[in-house]
Nucleic acid binder design. Structure first.
Ligand SMILES: [Zn+2]
Ligand SMILES: [Zn+2]
Ligand SMILES: [Zn+2]
Ligand SMILES: [Zn+2]
Lengths: 149, 149
DNA sequence: TGACACCCTGTAGTCACTATAGGGTCAAGG
DNA sequence: CCTTGACCCTATAGTGACTACAGGGTGTCA
């Protein structure tokens, strides 16, 4: 299987597959006579694993750690379980933070009468008030509201 | 007021202030004889506005648009209000998405008996299953669960 | 022989900063 | 006058997880 077919099967771009190889998440595959990468089923499964984890918003570092567990199947699974638990914590923290932002945005919205001019709008006046620096979460990584195109 | 004092007052780094200037969010201030930036109250207010918006996870593009409204105080405030409304949508979308991830992670956690080896752990086996590509949200930008250090 | 789809490497761009390197300015103390 | 130290300046590169080229090579078909 060449890189294009692997990428299609797992729903990623070809460049992403090569990126995962550079990052050490996918092992270097065999090469054809013409220097093309040649993949096997095991590569496709590993790529699905990675994409599954990415769909859960894990970092590549978290995924690397999980893959290291998986590559050692006789070890107890405590470490892998702890990684999932920790990441669940990251997601929960981010949900809590975004819920606070949502409440603040809804409060902001209520401060606009709707027919006024910018100079009188409660929204913009409120936003000019200083803000106490947002508490920096320790291992937070579950990110932005805005996607990359 | 020199850049260090401005930065301290608004709780940002000096480099961030210079970055906002390069990005056109803060106007270029006057310079001292020794080429130091000299700021006034209006600059501090504008910086507070920017930080307030960033604390709500708006992008710099969204903030630029809001600042453009604010710089034109006789216009009706509809556009500014629509920007806030749209961003509230971004936050709500991201909360919904993260809630789905949270449910899936909790489901994963239940698949581990707790005393097994990695090879038998339901978590890792489940993660090896392919995943349908996550629906790409149109203007999503409210990002990751994982923070930058 | 040419067209075309696919593959290769290497580099640069994204976003919102952050962190250096390598210098200049300015007030106080010796 | 000279040094120390805090502050300032510009310019450049790094972060994460990709994405998009540029500039070439390979393989198959007509
Ligand atoms: Zn995580
Ligand atoms: Zn309004
Ligand atoms: Zn937004
Ligand atoms: Zn387990």
């Amino acid at each position: 299987m060449k890189i294009g077919e692997l990428a299609r099967r797992s729903g990623v771009k070809v460049e992403t597959v090569r990126y995962y190889e550079r990052e050490g998440l996918l092992p270097e595959p065999a090469r054809s006579e013409g220097n093309y990468r040649l993949y096997r089923e095991a590569h496709a499964e590993r790529l699905d694993f990675i994409r599954h984890c990415r769909a859960l918003d894990m970092t590549l570092d978290e995924i690397r750690a999980l893959l290291a567990c998986q590559d050692d199947p006789d070890q107890p699974c405590e470490e892998a379980d702890a990684l999932i638990e920790a990441h669940l914590g990251h997601v929960e923290q981010r949900i809590a933070q975004l819920s606070r932002l949502k409440a603040e945005l809804e409060g902001l919205r209520r401060r606009c009468a709707g027919q006024g001019k910018v100079g009188e709008c409660g929204i913009l006046n409120e936003l000019s008030q200083p803000v106490d620096p947002p508490a920096t979460l320790e291992h937070a990584h579950v990110g932005g509201v805005h996607p990359r195109r």
